[in-house]
Design a protein around this nucleic acid. Structure first.
Length: 283
DNA sequence: GATCAGGTAAAGT
DNA sequence: ACTTTACCTGAT
Protein backbone atom coordinates (compact mmCIF):
# COMPACT_ATOMS: atom_id res chain seq x y z
CA UNK A 1 0.00 0.00 0.00
CA UNK A 2 1.22 3.41 -0.90
CA UNK A 3 -0.36 6.63 0.31
CA UNK A 4 0.37 9.67 -1.77
CA UNK A 5 -0.44 13.11 -0.44
CA UNK A 6 -0.51 15.39 -3.41
CA UNK A 7 -3.15 17.38 -5.22
CA UNK A 8 -1.62 17.56 -8.68
CA UNK A 9 -3.23 14.34 -9.84
CA UNK A 10 -6.89 13.45 -10.22
CA UNK A 11 -7.69 9.88 -11.13
CA UNK A 12 -11.30 10.71 -12.02
CA UNK A 13 -10.17 13.29 -14.54
CA UNK A 14 -7.58 10.97 -16.02
CA UNK A 15 -10.18 8.22 -16.22
CA UNK A 16 -12.48 10.44 -18.31
CA UNK A 17 -9.78 12.23 -20.29
CA UNK A 18 -9.90 9.81 -23.20
CA UNK A 19 -6.28 8.71 -23.01
CA UNK A 20 -6.96 5.38 -21.32
CA UNK A 21 -9.91 3.06 -21.68
CA UNK A 22 -9.24 0.33 -19.17
CA UNK A 23 -9.66 2.42 -16.05
CA UNK A 24 -12.97 1.99 -14.30
CA UNK A 25 -14.68 4.31 -11.82
CA UNK A 26 -16.14 2.03 -9.15
CA UNK A 27 -17.74 4.95 -7.31
CA UNK A 28 -16.86 6.49 -3.95
CA UNK A 29 -13.50 7.63 -5.21
CA UNK A 30 -12.42 4.08 -6.00
CA UNK A 31 -10.91 3.08 -9.30
CA UNK A 32 -9.66 -0.12 -10.84
CA UNK A 33 -7.48 -0.37 -13.87
CA UNK A 34 -5.53 -2.69 -16.11
CA UNK A 35 -2.40 -1.51 -17.86
CA UNK A 36 -0.56 -4.02 -20.00
CA UNK A 37 -0.75 -7.08 -17.78
CA UNK A 38 -0.92 -5.30 -14.45
CA UNK A 39 -4.00 -4.73 -12.34
CA UNK A 40 -4.30 -1.89 -9.85
CA UNK A 41 -6.90 -0.37 -7.54
CA UNK A 42 -6.71 3.23 -6.38
CA UNK A 43 -8.71 5.20 -3.84
CA UNK A 44 -8.81 8.94 -3.91
CA UNK A 45 -10.17 11.40 -1.34
CA UNK A 46 -9.25 14.76 0.17
CA UNK A 47 -6.32 13.24 2.02
CA UNK A 48 -4.71 11.94 -1.13
CA UNK A 49 -4.36 8.75 -3.11
CA UNK A 50 -4.09 5.20 -1.91
CA UNK A 51 -2.46 2.76 -4.30
CA UNK A 52 -3.38 -0.80 -3.42
CA UNK A 53 -0.08 -2.40 -4.28
CA UNK A 54 3.33 -3.14 -2.82
CA UNK A 55 5.63 -0.17 -2.44
CA UNK A 56 8.09 -1.99 -4.64
CA UNK A 57 5.53 -2.31 -7.44
CA UNK A 58 4.58 1.32 -7.04
CA UNK A 59 8.17 2.38 -7.40
CA UNK A 60 8.94 0.13 -10.35
CA UNK A 61 5.71 0.55 -12.31
CA UNK A 62 3.09 3.05 -11.23
CA UNK A 63 5.26 6.00 -10.30
CA UNK A 64 6.49 6.09 -13.85
CA UNK A 65 3.12 5.15 -15.35
CA UNK A 66 1.39 8.12 -13.73
CA UNK A 67 4.27 10.39 -14.70
CA UNK A 68 4.69 11.53 -11.12
CA UNK A 69 8.06 13.13 -11.72
CA UNK A 70 6.72 15.65 -14.22
CA UNK A 71 5.73 19.05 -12.88
CA UNK A 72 2.53 19.93 -14.68
CA UNK A 73 2.03 23.11 -12.74
CA UNK A 74 5.16 24.58 -14.23
CA UNK A 75 3.88 23.61 -17.67
CA UNK A 76 0.62 25.44 -16.98
CA UNK A 77 2.57 28.51 -15.94
CA UNK A 78 3.46 29.03 -19.58
CA UNK A 79 -0.13 29.98 -20.31
CA UNK A 80 -0.59 33.46 -21.69
CA UNK A 81 -2.45 35.44 -19.04
CA UNK A 82 -4.47 37.02 -21.83
CA UNK A 83 -5.76 33.61 -22.92
CA UNK A 84 -8.56 33.18 -20.43
CA UNK A 85 -10.07 30.25 -22.28
CA UNK A 86 -6.91 28.14 -22.04
CA UNK A 87 -6.40 29.33 -18.47
CA UNK A 88 -9.88 28.13 -17.52
CA UNK A 89 -9.46 24.85 -19.37
CA UNK A 90 -6.15 24.12 -17.66
CA UNK A 91 -7.47 25.07 -14.24
CA UNK A 92 -10.48 22.85 -14.80
CA UNK A 93 -8.42 19.82 -15.79
CA UNK A 94 -5.35 20.41 -13.68
CA UNK A 95 -5.48 16.90 -12.26
CA UNK A 96 -4.81 15.39 -15.66
CA UNK A 97 -1.43 13.85 -16.37
CA UNK A 98 -0.20 12.17 -19.52
CA UNK A 99 0.14 8.50 -18.62
CA UNK A 100 3.11 6.49 -19.84
CA UNK A 101 1.19 3.66 -21.43
CA UNK A 102 2.37 0.69 -23.42
CA UNK A 103 3.16 1.51 -27.05
CA UNK A 104 1.63 -1.59 -28.64
CA UNK A 105 -1.50 -1.20 -26.54
CA UNK A 106 -1.85 2.41 -27.66
CA UNK A 107 -1.43 1.52 -31.32
CA UNK A 108 -4.37 -0.88 -31.21
CA UNK A 109 -6.38 1.25 -28.79
CA UNK A 110 -6.30 4.35 -30.96
CA UNK A 111 -6.93 2.45 -34.17
CA UNK A 112 -10.12 1.34 -32.43
CA UNK A 113 -10.88 4.88 -31.26
CA UNK A 114 -11.48 6.26 -34.76
CA UNK A 115 -15.06 7.32 -35.52
CA UNK A 116 -15.99 6.12 -32.07
CA UNK A 117 -16.93 7.52 -28.70
CA UNK A 118 -15.36 6.69 -25.36
CA UNK A 119 -18.10 4.43 -24.14
CA UNK A 120 -17.91 2.17 -27.16
CA UNK A 121 -14.11 2.22 -27.27
CA UNK A 122 -14.16 0.93 -23.71
CA UNK A 123 -16.52 -1.87 -24.58
CA UNK A 124 -14.63 -2.96 -27.68
CA UNK A 125 -11.30 -3.06 -25.86
CA UNK A 126 -12.91 -4.95 -23.00
CA UNK A 127 -14.25 -7.54 -25.42
CA UNK A 128 -10.93 -7.77 -27.23
CA UNK A 129 -9.04 -8.41 -24.00
CA UNK A 130 -11.65 -10.85 -22.76
CA UNK A 131 -11.42 -12.82 -25.96
CA UNK A 132 -7.71 -12.67 -26.71
CA UNK A 133 -5.97 -11.61 -23.51
CA UNK A 134 -4.94 -13.84 -20.62
CA UNK A 135 -7.26 -14.13 -17.65
CA UNK A 136 -5.50 -13.49 -14.37
CA UNK A 137 -6.47 -13.34 -10.75
CA UNK A 138 -6.52 -9.90 -9.13
CA UNK A 139 -3.92 -9.31 -6.40
CA UNK A 140 -4.90 -10.28 -2.85
CA UNK A 141 -4.93 -6.65 -1.77
CA UNK A 142 -7.88 -5.91 -4.10
CA UNK A 143 -11.06 -4.60 -2.50
CA UNK A 144 -13.32 -4.32 -5.54
CA UNK A 145 -15.88 -6.86 -6.71
CA UNK A 146 -13.61 -7.97 -9.51
CA UNK A 147 -11.77 -11.25 -8.98
CA UNK A 148 -10.18 -11.57 -12.40
CA UNK A 149 -8.91 -9.30 -15.08
CA UNK A 150 -7.81 -9.79 -18.68
CA UNK A 151 -4.43 -8.73 -20.01
CA UNK A 152 -4.07 -6.87 -23.29
CA UNK A 153 -3.37 -9.39 -26.08
CA UNK A 154 -0.03 -9.25 -27.89
CA UNK A 155 0.53 -8.89 -31.65
CA UNK A 156 0.93 -12.64 -32.21
CA UNK A 157 -2.50 -13.25 -30.74
CA UNK A 158 -4.30 -10.59 -32.78
CA UNK A 159 -2.45 -11.43 -35.98
CA UNK A 160 -3.57 -15.04 -35.60
CA UNK A 161 -7.20 -14.10 -35.04
CA UNK A 162 -9.72 -14.53 -37.84
CA UNK A 163 -11.34 -11.41 -39.27
CA UNK A 164 -14.87 -12.58 -38.59
CA UNK A 165 -13.84 -13.64 -35.13
CA UNK A 166 -12.34 -10.21 -34.48
CA UNK A 167 -15.53 -8.59 -35.67
CA UNK A 168 -17.38 -10.31 -32.86
CA UNK A 169 -15.73 -7.74 -30.58
CA UNK A 170 -17.80 -5.08 -32.38
CA UNK A 171 -14.75 -3.71 -34.12
CA UNK A 172 -16.67 -3.14 -37.34
CA UNK A 173 -14.48 -2.12 -40.27
CA UNK A 174 -11.60 -1.57 -37.85
CA UNK A 175 -11.16 -5.34 -37.51
CA UNK A 176 -9.08 -5.40 -40.67
CA UNK A 177 -6.91 -2.52 -39.41
CA UNK A 178 -6.25 -4.30 -36.12
CA UNK A 179 -5.35 -7.56 -37.81
CA UNK A 180 -3.16 -6.04 -40.49
CA UNK A 181 -1.30 -3.80 -38.05
CA UNK A 182 -0.72 -6.78 -35.76
CA UNK A 183 0.68 -8.66 -38.75
CA UNK A 184 2.92 -5.76 -39.75
CA UNK A 185 4.36 -5.64 -36.27
CA UNK A 186 4.68 -9.40 -35.94
CA UNK A 187 6.53 -9.62 -39.28
CA UNK A 188 8.91 -6.87 -38.24
CA UNK A 189 7.63 -4.64 -41.00
CA UNK A 190 7.00 -2.06 -38.31
CA UNK A 191 9.33 -2.23 -35.31
CA UNK A 192 7.93 -0.56 -32.22
CA UNK A 193 11.15 -0.85 -30.21
CA UNK A 194 12.87 1.12 -32.93
CA UNK A 195 10.14 3.73 -33.14
CA UNK A 196 10.51 4.26 -29.41
CA UNK A 197 14.01 5.56 -30.03
CA UNK A 198 13.07 8.07 -32.71
CA UNK A 199 12.30 11.76 -32.48
CA UNK A 200 8.67 12.84 -32.79
CA UNK A 201 8.45 13.58 -36.53
CA UNK A 202 10.21 10.34 -37.50
CA UNK A 203 8.24 8.29 -34.99
CA UNK A 204 4.96 9.65 -36.32
CA UNK A 205 5.98 8.96 -39.89
CA UNK A 206 6.78 5.35 -39.04
CA UNK A 207 3.50 4.89 -37.18
CA UNK A 208 1.63 6.16 -40.23
CA UNK A 209 2.76 3.02 -42.02
CA UNK A 210 0.47 0.93 -39.83
CA UNK A 211 -2.81 0.03 -41.46
CA UNK A 212 -5.60 2.13 -39.99
CA UNK A 213 -3.24 4.73 -38.54
CA UNK A 214 -3.67 8.21 -39.95
CA UNK A 215 -2.38 11.55 -38.71
CA UNK A 216 -4.74 11.91 -35.76
CA UNK A 217 -4.26 8.38 -34.47
CA UNK A 218 -0.49 8.59 -34.96
CA UNK A 219 -0.42 11.72 -32.80
CA UNK A 220 -2.44 9.99 -30.10
CA UNK A 221 0.02 7.10 -30.13
CA UNK A 222 2.97 9.50 -29.92
CA UNK A 223 1.40 11.39 -27.03
CA UNK A 224 0.06 8.50 -24.98
CA UNK A 225 2.33 5.62 -25.99
CA UNK A 226 5.64 7.45 -26.39
CA UNK A 227 5.06 10.36 -24.02
CA UNK A 228 5.96 12.82 -26.74
CA UNK A 229 4.31 15.85 -25.21
CA UNK A 230 4.75 17.89 -28.36
CA UNK A 231 2.23 15.73 -30.27
CA UNK A 232 -1.06 17.57 -30.70
CA UNK A 233 -3.83 15.26 -31.96
CA UNK A 234 -6.49 17.16 -33.86
CA UNK A 235 -9.88 15.51 -33.83
CA UNK A 236 -13.28 17.01 -34.59
CA UNK A 237 -13.56 18.44 -31.07
CA UNK A 238 -10.19 20.12 -31.16
CA UNK A 239 -10.84 21.32 -34.69
CA UNK A 240 -14.02 23.04 -33.54
CA UNK A 241 -12.42 24.48 -30.43
CA UNK A 242 -9.61 25.96 -32.51
CA UNK A 243 -12.05 27.39 -35.04
CA UNK A 244 -14.23 28.92 -32.35
CA UNK A 245 -11.72 30.14 -29.78
CA UNK A 246 -8.60 30.60 -31.88
CA UNK A 247 -9.71 32.02 -35.23
CA UNK A 248 -6.29 33.67 -35.56
CA UNK A 249 -4.59 30.36 -34.89
CA UNK A 250 -3.51 28.58 -31.72
CA UNK A 251 -0.20 29.89 -30.33
CA UNK A 252 1.74 26.65 -30.79
CA UNK A 253 5.08 28.47 -30.61
CA UNK A 254 4.47 29.63 -27.11
CA UNK A 255 3.80 26.10 -25.87
CA UNK A 256 6.49 24.32 -27.83
CA UNK A 257 7.28 20.90 -26.44
CA UNK A 258 4.07 20.71 -24.42
CA UNK A 259 1.39 21.08 -27.07
CA UNK A 260 -0.10 17.71 -26.19
CA UNK A 261 -0.63 18.64 -22.55
CA UNK A 262 -2.64 21.67 -23.61
CA UNK A 263 -4.53 19.57 -26.12
CA UNK A 264 -5.66 17.43 -23.20
CA UNK A 265 -6.81 20.44 -21.18
CA UNK A 266 -8.77 21.76 -24.17
CA UNK A 267 -10.30 18.40 -24.96
CA UNK A 268 -11.30 17.61 -21.40
CA UNK A 269 -12.70 21.10 -20.87
CA UNK A 270 -14.78 20.79 -24.01
CA UNK A 271 -16.23 17.48 -22.86
CA UNK A 272 -16.90 18.26 -19.22
CA UNK A 273 -16.30 21.95 -18.53
CA UNK A 274 -18.61 24.99 -18.75
CA UNK A 275 -22.00 24.57 -20.38
CA UNK A 276 -21.53 22.11 -23.18
CA UNK A 277 -18.41 22.90 -25.16
CA UNK A 278 -17.51 24.09 -28.60
CA UNK A 279 -19.22 21.33 -30.51
CA UNK A 280 -22.59 22.44 -29.17
CA UNK A 281 -21.84 26.16 -29.23
CA UNK A 282 -21.57 26.41 -32.97
CA UNK A 283 -24.85 25.02 -34.26
C1' DG B 1 -34.85 7.01 -39.77
C1' DA B 2 -31.06 10.08 -40.64
C1' DT B 3 -27.05 11.52 -38.66
C1' DC B 4 -22.87 11.35 -36.25
C1' DA B 5 -19.19 9.61 -33.21
C1' DG B 6 -12.07 11.61 -30.90
C1' DG B 7 -10.82 9.01 -39.15
C1' DT B 8 -8.77 6.36 -42.63
C1' DA B 9 -8.18 3.72 -46.95
C1' DA B 10 -9.26 3.72 -51.35
C1' DA B 11 -11.30 5.49 -55.25
C1' DG B 12 -12.06 9.46 -57.99
C1' DT B 13 -10.89 14.17 -59.88
C1' DA C 1 -1.53 16.12 -55.01
C1' DC C 2 -5.94 17.13 -53.50
C1' DT C 3 -11.04 15.96 -52.76
C1' DT C 4 -14.74 12.72 -52.02
C1' DT C 5 -16.75 8.37 -50.46
C1' DA C 6 -17.61 4.01 -48.08
C1' DC C 7 -17.26 2.05 -43.83
C1' DC C 8 -19.17 -1.23 -38.75
C1' DT C 9 -21.94 -0.18 -34.99
C1' DG C 10 -24.65 2.02 -31.52
C1' DA C 11 -26.66 6.18 -29.53
C1' DT C 12 -29.64 10.22 -30.15
Amino acid sequence: MVLLRRDDIDIGQICDSGQCFRMENMGGGRFSMVAGDHYLEIEQNKKGLLFRCEEETFESIWKDYFDLDTDYQSIRKKIDSGDSYLARAAEFGKGIRILRQDLWEMVITFIISQQNHIKRIRRIIGLLCEKYGERRRCPESSQGDRRFYDTFPGPERLAAAGLEELRECNLGYRARYVKETAEQILKGDVILEEIAGLEYPAAKQELLRCCGVGSKVADCICLFGLHMLQAFPVDTHIRQILALHYPEGFPFDRYQGYEGVFQQYLFYFDLFGEKGGAARDIS
